[in-house]
Amino acid sequence: MRSKRAELMVGCFIVLGIVALVYLAVQVSGLAFSSKKDTYQIVARFDDIAGLTSRAKVSIAGVTVGSVESITLDKELYMALVSMNINSDVDNIPIDSSMAVLTSGLLGEKYLGISIGAEDEMLKDGSEIYDTQSALVLETLISQFLFNSGDSE
């Protein structure tokens, strides 16, 4: 009888451990098991991505609609080639939409924001967004400010 109780407790213990693992995976790290399936891929080229990393979120009006898949260097144009996965239920992004590298808060992470265009044709798998806006780099901003203020005098 005593051994039965031990077996039961050991079973509970192992189940508890597995529940903890699933909890950490889903609730804490936000792992979605079917993330690959229902997305389509689009690309965009940027002059400067300044600290954007893969898996950064892609948002429209602040709502996350996808994530960055990979960032590589386009050797011909010397630009950053960013490919990203967009949730397939968001299938009505016009082809002339623009994209910008944004920062959440003063010290927060970099993410991509999409501003909606006016065309009737929509983005589909493999499309490219041509209208891109690079990240605001603090050093550039400061030097621009100094240069402009010197000009006006």
């Binding site: 995976a25 804490v28 992470e109």
Partner: peptide, 19 residues
């Protein structure tokens, strides 16, 4: 609280490495 956690925690680098 949860979204800042989910954004920065990755299953493979954090949960699995800890394991």
């Amino acid at each position: 609280f949860w979204s800042s956690m989910q954004q920065s925690v990755y299953f493979d680098t954090d949960v699995l490495n800890g394991l």
